[in-house]
Structures are given as structure tokens and as C-alpha cells.
Amino acid sequence: MLADLDRKVLRILFNFSRSNGRMPDLKELERKTGKAAPELADALDRLRKGVYIMGRRLSEVVIIESEERKPEKKAALASGSTTGGGGIYGQN
């Protein structure tokens, strides 16, 4: 589960890149989140470790997943089960 700041930063990165064709710089992220650079650096590191984004520099960031993963979906994928039961075609 993502922390509030991490989720907010991820949404800002996604929406900003879609509307502006580039990633925001650190000053823009500070302004949009109201957080200081060290807090944002920590949030970006957590997003990298969670494989939501890739890239060391903010200008090089690539978004891997634009939304938080759902815990039940992750658990189902890990166990190999599917909703509705019975494999791909509903058969066991």
C-alpha cells in the first residue's frame, strides 16, 4: 500500500507528463505537493523500490504503473487463482 505522499507524487507525475509532454522538475513537484525536496526524494525512492517508476533523475523517470496496485489482485496473482474460479475458461 502506498503512503499518501507517494500516491500523490505518482498521480502528479502521471498527469503532468500527460498534459505537458515532460516530467515536472523538483521545484514544480515542491509547489504541487507542498513538500520539501528531501521528502520528495524519499517518496521517489519508495516509488522506484516498489517498481512504480524507473529512472534515477526526475527528467528521466518512466512510469511503470500509474495507479496503486490492489492488494487482493496482487494476492490472487501470487497464488495463481483467478476470480470466478476454474482457470481461463471457467473449467477446473
Score class of each variant (00 low, 15 high):
residue 40 L to K: 11
residue 91 Q to D: 13
residue 12 I to T: 06
residue 2 L to M: 11
residue 34 G to Q: 03
residue 46 R to G: 01
residue 53 I to R: 11
residue 11 R to V: 10
residue 16 F to Q: 05
residue 14 F to M: 08
residue 13 L to H: 06
residue 9 V to M: 03
residue 38 P to S: 00
residue 90 G to R: 07
residue 28 E to V: 04
residue 27 K to F: 09
residue 26 L to Q: 10
residue 69 R to H: 13
residue 42 D to C: 10
residue 50 G to M: 07
residue 76 A to Y: 01
residue 1 M to W: 06
residue 46 R to K: 04
residue 43 A to L: 04
residue 12 I to W: 05
residue 56 R to T: 14
residue 71 P to R: 06
residue 67 E to S: 09
residue 78 A to F: 02
residue 48 R to S: 06
residue 85 G to F: 13
residue 7 R to K: 15
residue 28 E to Y: 12
residue 34 G to R: 09
residue 1 M to R: 10
residue 45 D to S: 13
residue 3 A to G: 11
residue 11 R to H: 13
residue 49 K to Y: 07
residue 66 S to T: 03
residue 27 K to C: 05
residue 44 L to A: 05
residue 90 G to T: 02
residue 64 I to N: 03
residue 7 R to Y: 12
residue 88 I to V: 15
residue 28 E to G: 07
residue 66 S to Q: 13
residue 63 I to V: 09
residue 4 D to Q: 14
residue 84 G to S: 03
residue 52 Y to T: 06
residue 56 R to V: 15
residue 68 E to G: 10
residue 68 E to V: 01
residue 73 K to F: 12
residue 74 K to T: 07
residue 8 K to C: 08
residue 39 E to S: 12
residue 51 V to D: 14
residue 4 D to S: 15
residue 59 S to W: 10
residue 86 G to C: 07
residue 25 D to H: 08
residue 89 Y to E: 01
residue 14 F to L: 08
residue 60 E to A: 15
residue 4 D to H: 04
residue 45 D to C: 04
residue 11 R to P: 00
residue 23 M to H: 13
residue 67 E to P: 02
residue 16 F to I: 11
residue 80 G to S: 03
residue 81 S to P: 00
residue 80 G to T: 01
residue 21 G to V: 05
residue 58 L to T: 12
residue 85 G to K: 14
residue 16 F to V: 08
residue 24 P to L: 08
residue 84 G to T: 06
residue 37 A to I: 09
residue 67 E to K: 14
residue 22 R to D: 00
residue 39 E to K: 07
residue 85 G to D: 07
residue 2 L to Q: 08
residue 17 S to C: 05
residue 41 A to Q: 09
residue 6 D to T: 10
residue 54 M to T: 13
residue 17 S to V: 05
residue 78 A to Q: 08
residue 82 T to V: 14
residue 49 K to G: 08
residue 67 E to G: 01
residue 44 L to R: 07
residue 9 V to E: 01
residue 39 E to N: 11
residue 30 E to D: 02
residue 19 S to F: 09
